[in-house]
Simulated scan of single mutants.
Amino acid sequence: MRAVVVETPGDVDALTIGQIDTPVPGQGEVLVRTVASGVNRADVLQRQGHYPPPRGVTDTIGLEASGVVAGVGDGVTRWKEGDEVVALLAGGGYAEYFVVPEGQAIAPPPGVDLVSAAGVLEVAATVLSNTRVGFLKAGDVFLVHGGAGGIGTFAIQYAKALGATVAATAGSPEKLQHCLDFGADYAFDYHEDWVAAVKDATGGADMILDIIGAKYLESNVKALKKGGRLVVIGLQGGVKGTLNLGLLLNKAATVTATSLRFRPDKEKASICQAVEQEVWPMLGDGRIRLAPETRIPFEEVRRAHEQLVGGGNVGKIVLVH
């Protein structure tokens, strides 16, 4: 089958279309013919050699995809050939076929076509699971960095649906307006003193969802209220930072870092079930709208990665097979 192959990690030239063996579904697994694949920052990190897959998982990039069931392994009860699914993957989405544990495949959101659906599940699962880690609740002040991206666009709306006051950071007037258009109460330019702006507007954040990492570590803690929670889910700003532990202690704050990819299959299946039960109705009734979407042919995977890291992208990128 055709798949994106990375023989030597590096820049976008490392991405080539090649032939690999079609996977065979094992016990409790589903084989899916891919319709579209979501493109994520983690894919870029893996292409660069900084984010290898868990042991035993294919080297093929891709953490989410949609498609049609082409076969099932022993023990599968929910799915049959011909069913349409979206899947949360530990790897393998940039390929003509992929396999996924039965519990990590769910029905597409109602009224959303399979191409658009390819870019929803990983974002939804990330936001839902990590707002739970951060104990986000109605009345909280929620801050998300990268508000104009796929994660940010979804997180703004999900937090609003939970009853939070929402602030977001972004890097241009157009992206700031995007955040406001999707429901943010406040949008701050990260080139400016966003910590002071957050504190002036809201008194500080109860929870911060952070894709930046080291670069924002101490600033994030400064932006928290007493008892606030910082949940780090990305490392775009580096892996090593410094933090005044006295500040953290005085605020009685919590810093947590999580990775959806490396969670056990049973835990990911539970998250997918929660997305299907809680988030899909929000998409159905309009509480959450899909982010702007760029569709790029599978053969132009290099262009997809270039657009994602170029700084001008808004919303979600999907590869169409």
Rank of each mutant, 00 (worst) to 15 (best):
V255P: 04
G204E: 07
R287D: 09
G139A: 11
H50G: 01
T77H: 03
G49P: 00
C179E: 05
V198H: 02
V318R: 06
T254G: 00
G171D: 12
R303I: 03
E174N: 05
Y190V: 10
G28F: 12
S116H: 14
C179K: 07
E306R: 12
V85C: 09
F298H: 06
K226Y: 14
E96L: 04
L209Y: 01
I296V: 15
I17K: 07
G75F: 10
R303S: 15
L308V: 07
D113E: 06
G67I: 12
K268Q: 13
P9Y: 08
F188G: 13
A36F: 14
R289W: 03
P109N: 02
V86R: 08
P292Y: 08
L243V: 05
L243K: 07
G312R: 14
G134M: 06
T58C: 07
G312F: 02
Q19D: 14
N244P: 02
Q157F: 07
L31Q: 11
E293N: 09
V279H: 01
A42S: 15
V309R: 15
L217D: 03
A257I: 06
T202M: 12
A253F: 05
H50V: 07
L235S: 13
P110E: 08
G227C: 11
I208T: 04
A36R: 03
E96G: 03
T8V: 14
K226P: 10
I208S: 01
Q236N: 10
P23Q: 12
L245R: 05
A125P: 05
Q157I: 05
A65P: 09
V68M: 10
G38C: 10
G62Q: 11
Q19M: 14
A159W: 02
V318H: 11
A95W: 01
G237E: 05
G234N: 08
K215H: 14
L128D: 01
P23H: 10
D181S: 13
P281V: 10
A87V: 15
F142T: 12
S270L: 12
A124K: 03
E267G: 01
A214N: 11
Y216G: 04
E192H: 07
K225E: 14
V30M: 09
M207W: 09
P101Y: 10
A36N: 07
L290H: 09
E96H: 03
F298E: 02
G134Y: 05
A159H: 02
E122V: 02
V85Q: 10
L45H: 11
F154E: 07
S129V: 06
P110Y: 00
L128C: 05
V57N: 00
D83L: 04
S116D: 15
M207V: 15
V72W: 00
W280K: 04
T242G: 10
E192Q: 14
E29Y: 03
D189F: 05
I233M: 04
V275A: 05
L121Y: 11
D11H: 08
A184F: 13
G315S: 07
R132G: 01
V86Q: 04
K222W: 07
K316D: 11
Y158P: 00
P54E: 09
Q46W: 11
Q48R: 13
G152Q: 04
Q236A: 15
F142A: 12
